[in-house]
Amino acid sequence: MATATAAPVDERIKNLGVTRQLLARPEIGALLGAVVVFAFFAVQSSVFRSGAGVANWLDPASTLGIMAIPVALLMIGGEFDLSAGVMVGTVGLTIGLLTGQYGMNTWGALVIALALALALGFFNGYLVVRTKLPSFIITLGTFLMLQGLNLGVTKAVTDTVQADAIDTAPAYRPAYDIFASTVSVGGVEFRVTILWWIALTALATWVLLRTRFGNWIFSVGGNVQAARSVGVPAARTKVVLFMTTAAGAWLVGTMSALRLTSIQANTGIGEELIYIVAAVIGGCLLTGGFGSAVGASLGALIFGMVQQGIVYLGWDSDWFKFFLGAMLLLAVFTNQFVRRLAEESRR
């Protein structure tokens, strides 16, 4: 992970070379990918490389990135959360119904939605560590349940498949300013979500590489038996990771509810796989124990660029999914290759 600093010189590590040391880092593949994708679109489209264009593709990248980071941490910890996408919808709908339908104060609705999200995350995590079943199957269950609940409750309350009029609630404006407004930089309006994204990337990287908890995340994903035997609270670590993912879903759900002022009952369905893809493009191993938060953010950045870049080039947006699939395969191959190189280079 971190490169050696101030280590006494050892003749056996001299010949490692900068390239090989760089290649040992999980996010290097995603960095190269991001550079290539940027160059590809920037050369062909002047709008893509303009200030407004940059703001435009950073916008979807930011909300995706905010989710991809906790999903990456969870994957490093050896688990998946398939309910992460639909949970964004659950949070948005909760806020939408409480504010738009019942006229609740926006802050109150946000707090209730957060409590709900954390409870769902705890539920996922607790079931996984108690039953020792694969998280894939447990969260597939919560995914389907939430999908049904989102639709059922929304229909029952509003008689439609959406919750709207979120902006009519008290204290909507200050909440909007924090979670969904734009910030002007050099005459270009950037979404505030981009700042959240950058801050969370930095925070997650720090937690992962520089705290005890980060060490525990790597260990429970890398070898949970070993972690437990040296006193790492493995179950607690995993539950906290599931709750962190849920907190991410709350943040993104809040952002989209406040920004769109109405939210569809099917929001977030299918997004869970995109988060995982972004994390994998960012160098997370599917088997756990390896990956980075910066990588996941770079994965999200690639998504944002491709999604908007295709529009700028005037292509049919149907090609987006094809491109994603190809990116994923490429990323998995690169990860495998990089990992092998990393291990060889250290021998």
Binding site: N215, N223, A226, S229, V230
Partner: peptide, 24 residues
């Protein structure tokens, strides 16, 4: 020290050494 060592293969030596008792 068991035969199947309590080590995490993908983690650096120093992280393994202090795993569970990290200095802060």
């Amino acid at each position: 020290v068991y035969q199947d060592l309590a080590m995490v293969p993908l983690m650096p030596i120093w992280r393994n050494f202090f795993l569970g008792s990290e200095p802060t």
